[in-house]
Design a protein around this nucleic acid. Sequence first.
DNA 1: GCGCAACATGAAAGCGCTTTCAAAATGACC
DNA 2: GGTCATTTTGAAAGCGCTTTCATGTTGCGC
Lengths: 366, 366
Amino acid sequence: MYGPFDATYARLSQALAVKLDGAFVSCRNAAMNDRPTTTLDQVARAAGVSPSTVSRILNGTARVSEAKRRSVEEAIAALDYRPNVLAQGLARGRSLTIGVLTQDIASPFYSESLKGIEEALAGTGYAPLFVSGHWDAEEEARKVALLVDRRVDGVIVLTGMIPDDALIATAERVPVAVTGRTLNAPRLIAIDLDHEAGAYAATRYLIDLGHTRIVHLAGVQGHADARARLAGYRRALAEAGIAEDPALIVDGQFNENGGLDAVNALLDHRVSFTAIFAANDQSAVGARLALYRRGLRVPDDVSLVGFDDLPGSLYTTPPLTTVRQPAYELGRLTARVLLHLIDNRPLPALDLPMSLIVRDSAGEPA
Amino acid sequence: MYGPFDATYARLSQALAVKLDGAFVSCRNAAMNDRPTTTLDQVARAAGVSPSTVSRILNGTARVSEAKRRSVEEAIAALDYRPNVLAQGLARGRSLTIGVLTQDIASPFYSESLKGIEEALAGTGYAPLFVSGHWDAEEEARKVALLVDRRVDGVIVLTGMIPDDALIATAERVPVAVTGRTLNAPRLIAIDLDHEAGAYAATRYLIDLGHTRIVHLAGVQGHADARARLAGYRRALAEAGIAEDPALIVDGQFNENGGLDAVNALLDHRVSFTAIFAANDQSAVGARLALYRRGLRVPDDVSLVGFDDLPGSLYTTPPLTTVRQPAYELGRLTARVLLHLIDNRPLPALDLPMSLIVRDSAGEPA
DNA sequence: GCGCAACATGAAAGCGCTTTCAAAATGACC
DNA sequence: GGTCATTTTGAAAGCGCTTTCATGTTGCGC
């Protein structure tokens, strides 16, 4: 037992926590003295021109004499004027905001897509407004409504459980781009990747290595991606003439703990297998820990293949062989396509391949 | 060599990629037929009352006769009316938006704080607007300006490199809450955790286990947290009477690759050590992989302690002993404090402890 | 039934910007 | 120098909401 400090000890799940120090906080809560924000009218007055002229200069909407331009620019600099984007939005009928419904702002997978969206929007004047639905159809609908109420100029939905109908209805008000679905409606664009093919490739890879007893750590029931990946697994087995064993298809819940529990259960029941195909990297990581705890080596004793290629999967021990989903690129593309949809421009060409990334977690069976 | 498919092969960094399938895209780009959005005026007309009355009912600003209330509510339902939040913001002078400057939307550490902010704001009417500064003072300043231009009602800054002055200047326009600094200014609140103490505890823990040759995988130079953690490491050594060996303090860059490279270099140079204290979990994970590649066991051959307690650190092999930073709670608290600052209410009590989470990656030296 | 307070309601003036429309200024040309 | 096309500019009307202010109602006590 460990205990050198004169501190309080607390037994956590499987961790001993030592409380250390509190937070340092500093603040001077001054009297409300909002620095008065300067408006376009003030700039106009200072420059001796009309508000319209200032607006025109700001937006380059029309030609303006050099003299006025200069005096307006001086006034802007002197007053440190910054246009009120809200007011602009109201006047123009566009908010320059793109609403993005993700499921969990901290999801290692979707946050890559958010990054792609951010990147695609950078420099366009649009700012993304991120909201999380937590895989709950109701909450997702509420969050989409929130976006619409804020008059976003477009909505991006990253997968989720919100029904197609709701998305179609939303598309009546504002252009929508959704990933992870196939869907056809006016002012709505759906971008999907071929999860079935990815899963097929992963499973086929294991089969080609010589495995026949392959566990599938399935994703969350009712989730479209989970279904597609299971289908790919099945197709690969069928094609190879390997009979499907229901005992090998277990629930991995798409998360670490699910993978951990599932593999523990498998091992407890003495189910025999030589490889695991996890429906996502997170459950693969959980599975890997369960194997580690039982002293099973990867890939020597058990081969492991994941799905997603999370940034961290390059650094697991051993680095994880997995199906790469181009999450970042998907986000970028989706945002780009949405902008095109908003401007009613022709849609750009699309090409987003899934790919099997072979690292060190799978090998031939012992 | 592996190659069962009739597919293209490509040699990646350390991975063989098999290109699979393209994206499925569906869309019907209908003619622009924006469903006309209904306004408060229309509701008023439909209900046979004045706009003021509708507004009052919407906001509960004043008592209204039961009859009118009912007819307005019917009109709202019939027209499917939703208030325009932008217009409300303009009229009220408040946007109901909180700007949040993070560094990387996909950072596993900071996204926990974002989650906390989201949680704290849920149900308050405020929505967070997330922007990323990428640890670049210039970009951070630009992003903060963007937030101010959108007239956010408050700004949260998660650490970052933006100079204190810039924050103080921002605070003249809008309330600011910043983490990872100690700073005192009007309408600005700074919340910091004690990184030095956390690092001290981690190092002391290793020392108490019997280690004396302890590597410190330092964070990014010039980063305040990195400095504080190094200081804690040093204090623990000094207190224990262990002479500091400069060869043991190496640059881990706060990321996986940095940790990997640093430990590789150490091993290449045959520096002897029995433990590693990494300045964050990401570099610890990189270090762990480097050790794995060399056949060194954790914790049998080398003990490893991280910093942050990322969600994934519970599932590394072995689970990582680390200093827990309450990132989620920090986000929640910061948002809450900011709301108080905005409303000029007394600030809530604060208590955010760091704690050493003992898992399985550190033990007594061999 | 009268006077006054209390209340419910509507008119209208913003919030800070854009944009249409028409007037004023400029310049080209004969 | 006058005419007309072309540009530059400003006045004013919104965008969709809130909020002040004034008006019209109601209710109460006497």
